[in-house]
Design a protein around this nucleic acid. Sequence first.
RNA 1: GGCGAGGUACCCAAGUGGCUAAGGGGGAGGUCUGCAAAACCUCUAUGCACGGGUUCGAAUCCCGUCCUCGCCUCCA
Length: 467
Amino acid sequence: MKISLFNTMGRKIEEFVPREAGRAGLYCCGMTVYNFAHIGNMRTYVFEDILRRALEMAGYEVRHVMNVTDVGHLTSDADEGEDKMIVAMRREGKTAHQIAEFYTDAFFRHADMLHIARPHVVCKATEHIPEMIAQVERLEANGLAYRAGGNVYFDIEKFPSYGDLAGLDMENLQAGARIEVDKAKRNEHDFALWFTQSKFENQEMIWDSPWGRGYPGWHIECSAMSMKYLGEQFDIHCGGIDHVPVHHTNEIAQAEGATGKKPWVRYWVHGEWLVMGEEKMSKSKGGFVTVDTLVERGYDPLALRYFCLQAHYRQQLGFSYDALDGAATALSRLRENVLALRKETGGTAAELGDDHPALAEFQAYLADDLNVPRAMSVVWNTLRSDRAAAEKLALVYRFDNVLGLGLEDYEPPREEIPEQVAALVEERLAARKAKDWATADALRKRLADMGYALKDTAEGTTVTKHS
RNA sequence: GGCGAGGUACCCAAGUGGCUAAGGGGGAGGUCUGCAAAACCUCUAUGCACGGGUUCGAAUCCCGUCCUCGCCUCCA
């Protein structure tokens, strides 16, 4: 199984060839933990999780690293606006550390609910300040950084390939199209590596540095930490599409500027937005829906995962509750199918050769720049095929190693049935036995009004809550 | 102003030159059932924003038009 990926650097699909045979180094940009992750954020992590699982299915030993940015980022590169962490502190009356810890925990709780595998390394920005300082010092030593107005800036004039990732046209880029340009910069597109000049009182997240007490720039944490855990050059770096023009562009400049080695990263892979209606989901517009919101509305979090699997990662995906309902229904049918197959086979899946045609088809789609929607169609076509039940079961389990829907471990929820309800069910059973259909149906209706649905099967009547 | 992504059925969404335009949801019909529910089966775009063009052949390539979204502040 050879995997091809769309490399943002170069904008074309390339076969994945790791630096070291059999191993894949994967760095995924994580959250800035000043608020909950919304489902748009989570879509990107689902995509990255699929990428990791696909690499594993292809036989690579994956080392998956993700950062947690727990140091405040200003709302603007011009040292204006407010620090997000400080806004959160004021909003919630907590310390920066408490804010970061709370939202970090919330993020991983949500990720777990979506069956997003934990990265092998989760690194916090605040625990890597020395590494960041060291990288800024390297940049200074290489003549790529300068001090001005108390801050340290990266000098993009000294890095000719700046902007290659995004295809930026530096001549026509309008800095300050929406913000004030920092007057201390030599070039308006230079970006800060280290700040000592802060407008904010009670800026509690500051550290000593060769340039004075301050805090790091917005991009340095990812280049410093990814290099610490994956080496000065590594295989794959991913994140949301928004990272292309600024964050990753700056990371490349910092990393390659510090080490002098190119390319720093072999494959850049970016996920598209989840959009609400016609707009991208964000805090200021388009609503703010979290995994918890979905749970409160009665959804299984995995319905969101299933929903994400229906679209290609490089296409915007239009979210609506109608569409999510569709995914939730499809997921429960998939589970019903698995339960039926288990029953038919006694739970024993067939032995499966690695060259099984259905598996090969599934993998071929996956290997083609993660065409998961197509891979999903293989799942359904397999279920509908005339293959033996044990074979289908084995295939579905194998598919699910990548899909991550937890099908092998799925058990229907055991409902706690109140005595009163149980009594009515018994009463109805008696009526049915007596073929008193009118009474039986009336009781069924009454139970339905109470929120309990009945299923009369060959093995007896089952009761489920809700629906 | 610059750059990028799109417009495929009622909804979500694959497909980028060639058999009958994946798959899921929804809807319709059917099997099963005392009737239901669940599950399963069948059907559901002679059509791919619009207008031209290239080609034996286009949703797919080219030109033009209309529309939507994103980025150029931090953002997944």
